[in-house]
Design a protein around this nucleic acid. Structure first.
Length: 550
DNA sequence: GTAGGGTTAG
């Protein structure tokens, strides 16, 4: 405990020393009559901003009578980096009323702020102003625009900006490649990369990262291998961004052997790379390895941060063994991370999935501020424990607090209705989701509705719901109805649904097994045999193993 | 001006 306080005190001292240095520098500039010089004032603003003291930075700005474009840019950037977007925009608007014209760096800073604030209309407005100012073919402004549009999901607009710039530099090429990466457009990314090479531009670490971003499925593993080869060829394998993304790419492709090989090849992996490996094991279901590597990291004396702790808690939730979760909860409290919304939400989920709903509830109630994810975690936990009416109360509390529900909130609520067989409540929530909250139902919402209707014996209603959907209907939704036909003993409807599933999933024997079971319960043994004879491949089941940890 | 890890949806 003592060493923990020592380390906190040392961190605090470092911050104070750094801020003290800036204040001393500022005082010195005042004494030397340099504080009103825009050059020195800009440097001091930057130093205050780097130490998180935007108020003092603004004070220096106010006291500087001659305001250069650098001075304006430094304060706008200070506000943008502190996520105080309103202040940054106001300052930008004030700047427009002065004789100091914003330059390409002012625009790029404010463009980035628009995308970080998910403010598409302001982005378009700023883009228009940049064009009027004659910055339409400026690479610096252009790369910020390409990135901003891509991050808001408007990749076509991003490529429009790119095409408007006659001689793109490497940064602009990289911005477009990353834009396709964020959008999951792997082919487009590779095409742009080839065009970049034809244009005589050399790839760098940013290029490789941009390309790797879209490789998120094992179908694309061949392309991932190719990009990996390219990064080795160009010597980017020691670039920490490239390395962590390679680990992440192999994890997303469910190829943990390769992910580990990359990790193992690095001399000193940083926290992000450790985190990518641990999250990879966690997300591919290998929670034991995830925990093992978390312990190894701790043994090295490295400090885990909130992102890493959240990943590890997700692993523990899968393991359904609260012991290590409690240990990590202790670590969280000792390190003052208990007020972090991401960590607390992961704790709520971990406790409820490990069977300790009360502990999860307590963490939830002690959170200084809850967001949509924390509410989703507690609603899901309550639903999992069969407390449907508690879920509804929590949902109302969430609405009263002004927290806007999302798709996952309704997944958790509908799931709770399924657990408690509340058909009418489920139907009402499904309607509210669509019409009151304007959320388009996703396949899992239909799965819950079909399960709800089916388990209440309302198979026709469930079938009508499916018939209202455009083709191709998700196999999970059809599978849910097939399963309900089994419990209700409706073999006619089961045949119709099963044949739709056979057509779209000819190699998936699970639906043949389901239909044959329905035939069996009807005593239609000839049909059972036919169905079993139609199966492909090896049908032997691997025996399951269970374990309970005390 | 461009790049990396994250919590909920059983």
């Amino acid at each position: 405990m003592q060493s923990h306080f020592d380390s906190l005190r040392s961190e605090l001292c470092k911050i104070c020393r750094s801020l003290l240095r800036v204040k001393k520098l500022h005082a010195l500039a005042i004494r030397s009559h340099l504080s009103e010089d825009p050059f020195y004032a800009t440097q001091i603003i930057r130093q205050y901003a780097a130490n998180g003291d935007v108020k003092s930075a603004h004070h220096v700005f106010d006291k500087t009578p001659t305001r250069s474009v650098f001075l304006w840019n430094s304060l706008i950037r200070a506000y943008a980096q502190a996520h105080r977007f309103r202040n940054a925009f106001d300052l930008f608007n004030n700047m427009l009323t002065t004789n100091t014209r914003p330059d390409n760096f002012t625009y790029s800073c404010i463009i980035r702020a628009c995308s970080e604030n998910f403010d598409c209309s302001s982005l378009r407005l700023v883009h228009g102003r940049a064009l009027v100012s004659g910055l339409g073919s400026d690479s610096i402004c252009g790369s910020a625009l390409v990135t901003a549009y891509s991050k808001l999901g408007l990749v076509n607009e991003a490529s429009g900006v790119f095409n408007g710039i006659p001689e793109p530099d490497s940064v602009l090429w990289n911005s477009l490649i990353s834009g396709y990466g964020y959008s999951g457009l792997c082919d487009k990314g590779v095409q742009t990369f080839n065009a970049m090479r034809r244009g005589g531009k050399k790839p760098d670490g940013y290029t490789i990262v941009g390309l790797l971003l879209s490789v998120a499925d094992s179908i694309l593993l061949r392309i991932g291998h190719g990009i990996h080869g390219l990064s080795l060829k160009h010597g980017f394998d020691s670039n920490s961004h490239v390395v962590s993304l390679l680990v992440n790419m192999y994890s997303r492709c469910k190829c943990m052997t390769s992910a580990y090989k990359v990790f193992e090849s690095i001399f000193q992996p940083d926290l992000v790379t450790w985190s990518a490996l641990i999250a990879g094991y966690s997300q591919t279901g290998d929670y034991l390895k995830a925990l093992l590597f978390f312990r190894e990291l701790n043994m090295k004396g490295e400090k885990a941060d909130t992102i890493l702790i959240s990943s590890v808690l997700a692993s523990i939730a899968q393991s359904a063994n609260a012991g290590p979760g409690r240990e990590i909860h202790g670590y969280v409290l000792r390190n003052g991370l208990g007020s972090d919304v991401m960590v607390s939400s992961a704790l709520v989920d971990m406790y409820s999935k490990c069977g300790f709903l009360h502990s999860g509830n307590r963490v939830f109630e002690l959170m200084p501020k809850q967001n949509v994810i924390s509410y989703n975690s507690i609603i899901s936990g309550l639903g999992l424990h069969g407390c449907a009416f508690e879920c509804f109360r929590m949902f109302n509390k969430m609405l009263n607090k002004g927290v806007v529900p999302d798709e996952s909130t309704f997944s958790a609520l509908l799931c709770a209705c399924c657990h408690a067989d509340l058909v009418q409540d489920g139907g009402e929530l499904f309607r509210r989701m669509k019409y009151e909250f304007d959320i388009e139902p996703r396949p899992e919402h239909y799965v819950y509705m079909v399960k709800l209707l089916g388990s209440a014996g309302e198979l026709d209603e469930a079938y009508n719901l499916i018939q209202s959907l455009p083709e191709p209907v998700d196999k999970g939704i059809l599978g849910a109805l097939l399963s309900c036909c089994n419990s209700c003993g409706n073999s006619d409807l089961a045949e119709t649904i099963a044949h739709r599933l056979f057509e779209s999933n000819p190699n998936d024997n699970v639906y043949r097994v389901m239909l044959s079971n329905i035939y069996a319960s009807d005593g239609r043994w000839d049909d059972v045999k036919k169905m079993r004879d139609n199966m492909t491949g090896d049908q032997r089941k691997v025996p399951g193993l269970s374990r309970i940890e005390g």
